[in-house]
């Protein structure tokens, strides 16, 4: 199984690149979900839930998702989950201004996202 971690969290890239292949994108939360959706359309399968963590999509700018990278038949379960997650995210960010966080708070968000995806990675390995 070829696992791939898709993230916009620089701390995840720094900390986990030796454990798993990391594809890092400098995009926002919603765009990370869209990158994953595109991978699913090519045949990849979701391994972690895109709405991980209780920090709301309009609060944290960071999102990390692990997929099984492959090409072929569409995995409908993965597609359903990513589409529902994109809908939920759009609902949450609609009408809300993007907050400019301080670098300390950004680091906190990065640490939480890292902790959650690292715990999931421990289960996968």
């Amino acid at each position: 199984m070829k696992t791939l971690l898709i993230t916009n969290n620089p701390l995840v890239k720094e900390e986990l690149s030796e454990k798993i292949t990391v594809k890092y994108y400098e995009v926002d939360y919603l765009e990370i979900l869209e990158v994953v959706r595109d991978e699913i359309h090519k045949g990849s399968k979701l391994l972690t839930h895109p709405l991980s963590g209780s920090v709301k999509p309009y609060e944290t700018p960071y999102k990390s998702i692990i997929i099984e990278e492959k090409q072929g038949e569409l995995d409908m379960d993965s597609l359903m989950i990513i589409e529902q997650s994109i809908d939920t995210t759009k609902k949450f960010i609609k009408g809300k201004e993007v907050t400019e966080w301080t670098s300390e708070i950004k680091e906190d968000f990065q640490v939480i996202d890292l902790s959650i995806i690292n715990n999931a990675l421990s289960s996968i390995k």
Partner: peptide, 8 residues
Amino acid sequence: ENVYLADK
């Protein structure tokens, strides 16, 4: 309530 879908 884990994040890994197989755990769920």
